[in-house]
Design a binder for these strands. Structure first.
Lengths: 337, 337
DNA sequence: AGATAAATTGCATACGTATTCAAAAACTGT
DNA sequence: ACAGTTTTTGAATACGTATGCAATTTATCT
């Protein structure tokens, strides 16, 4: 079976029909190339007749540029990352490039995925969900493929990155809660997650600096359900917390639902909850969640412009940009006005 | 500036280092090709030393297959479509293919987007958010690019499609609500949306068949905010409805929040709300929304397997699959047990 | 018109791989 | 050891485009 389709029309076909050379038809599709109006007209007419359009794969081979950006993600079921992806595609398409979307399922397949991205000769790489092995970094350097990490950063600054200061965000959360609460808790994400680590560390450090040592910690995996479950464990205790910081909004929403519907607690009277991200749902009136907003648009802008600077002028160095979160106070927390 | 990078290592480089021909190194990466263990070892050693891996773009040119599937979407901020996208990427990657993600912003740019997808010589096309112009259909036929529409269908069955029976879903919603309610309303999506049209028609037809004529209609755009706003308009009336069918869950959630927090209504005592999709949030305990579940996994499976059947064996015809929704009854509606 | 400059054209080649084909090498059984 | 068979090999070519270059045409100016 599987007959190869050789019925694609090539530039030679339209050249023959138009009575010009193949070069001419190519030049017709190359902005700024030297071609007379007369030939252009003939070519376009023939092209339309045959329904021709240039084969980008072949073009990429000779031009050594595919106009493809690899975007590596995982869990974009998450509202935050699904908006991030939306912004990236919008911006990248605006720049006349296209997106090879690569999903990472288990952290161990990362190298394979990135290597196939490189095999597709992508012009650049956006990575939101993986730490790069040194092998991969080396491959990117060798092939001179610009890379920008999004909400990740590498310890040694050998690759560009844009991310949010999670530690500072956690600290802001603590500072908001400290005055009016007594028993603090934190719901973190997976052990290996750097974002979870930074955010919770900032929070914990700040409350420890205020002499508080007996705070509680639970772990989730950034999902609503895991937040709900973690909250159940916390609120079941007799020394239940009266303030919970969740390292993601989704877990915070789960926490609120557990508190209200399973434990019949009033928010914020009995319990303050604070999240991280500022996803759409945080502002829904059922939740009205106080949270640390990641400046999503700014972050994507920064990542994209850094990436394209590197693409257009390869000898530029790496750049790491750390942005601050904005504290968005809503009614899920008790706090001074 | 913009120096072309000619430092990529090619099969010739590793051939030279390994002391074999370029053909040999190519065969090393072609499963089933005829090559001795001895040469293979030499090649792999050299390849590793030079950190070589084959250029898929060049390979695609000769093999006439890119192993790329174009996926065309819009508004994947929406939880439903972001899960759809997640499933598609997972399945497509499992099959050893990759995804060219194309976002549609305004319905008029569709042709451009699809035509660039074709220029990239994609092996197949999944389209979730656009109706195809006849020009595009023709291009796909000419290039023999398999296409499958997702939650869209074309009137003339000339292209494969997988979608959900929206009309039947709307009817089920009506049947659930009819016994215990008196004033019905429907919140639709944009005028041009076929999914909105089917779902609302099914609903309206069913209640009309029961002799009810004075139902209300409002329009949103599938978002939470638009659902909230539409509900405000409905609930502000003195003849306010006691049952609202929304053609998407997100609008239903907005409706619930408006009812509860702006109008202080009890759900379901004062108002029943029913949605469509069964997104994650529908089952959150703050909402517990009755809804019509689209069998997302089944739908994606069907779409993928149809697509790959066409890819592997081009002479297969088109196939249209219409699936049924499942009514998921939760506590946002009054209904018989 | 003629000389010169400028724009256009087609030829040939390169991009990096897969693959056909004929030649060479490695086996097989006697 | 030898003819016959199978496996492996490298040279040559194709894929569809862009582009450097020399040749040709067209425009410009006196």
């Amino acid at each position: 079976m599987k007959e190869k389709r050789n019925n694609r029309v090539s530039s030679f076909d339209v050249a023959r029909l138009a009575g010009v050379s193949q070069s001419a038809v190519s030049r017709c599709y190359t902005p700024g190339a030297s071609i007379s109006e007369k030939s252009r007209a003939k070519v376009l007419k023939a092209a339309k007749e045959l329904n021709y359009s240039p084969n980008i794969i072949a073009r990429s081979l000779v031009q050594k540029t595919t106009r493809i950006i690899g975007v590596v993600m995982n869990r974009y079921a998450s509202p935050f990352y699904s908006r991030v992806l939306g912004e990236f595609t919008r911006k990248i398409q605006e720049k006349g490039h296209n997106i090879l979307l690569m999903n990472i399922h288990n952290e161990q397949g990362v190298d394979d995925i990135l290597s196939t991205a490189l095999q597709y000769q992508v012009d650049g790489l956006v990575i939101t969900s993986a730490t790069l092995s040194s092998t991969v970094v080396e491959s990117c350097l060798q092939t001179q493929t610009p890379v920008v990490l999004f909400n990740r950063y590498s310890m040694h600054n050998e690759v560009s990155a844009v991310y949010c200061d999670g530690s500072d965000g956690g600290r802001k959360a603590a500072e908001l809660l400290l005055p009016r609460h007594r028993r603090f808790a934190c719901i973190k994400g997976e052990e290996g997650s750097s974002t979870s680590r930074d955010r919770s560390q900032g929070f914990i450090q700040a409350i420890e600096e205020n002499g508080i040592r007996d705070y509680l910690c639970e772990r989730g995996d950034f999902t609503y359900d895991s937040g709900y479950a973690a909250a159940e464990r916390l609120l079941d205790r007799k020394d239940r917390p009266d303030a919970i910081f969740c390292v993601s909004d989704l877990m915070a929403l789960g926490t609120m639902d557990a508190a209200r519907h399973k434990f019949n607690l009033k928010i914020p009277e009995d319990l303050s909850v604070i999240g991280f991200d500022d996803i759409d749902m945080a502002s829904w009136s059922s939740y009205d969640l106080t949270t640390l907003r990641q400046p999503l648009i700014t972050m994507v802008d920064a990542a994209i412009s850094q990436l394209f600077r590197s693409i257009e002028n390869l000898d530029e160095g790496t750049l790491v940009r750390k942005l601050k979160t904005d504290l968005i106070t809503r009614t899920s927390t008790r706090h001074s006005p």
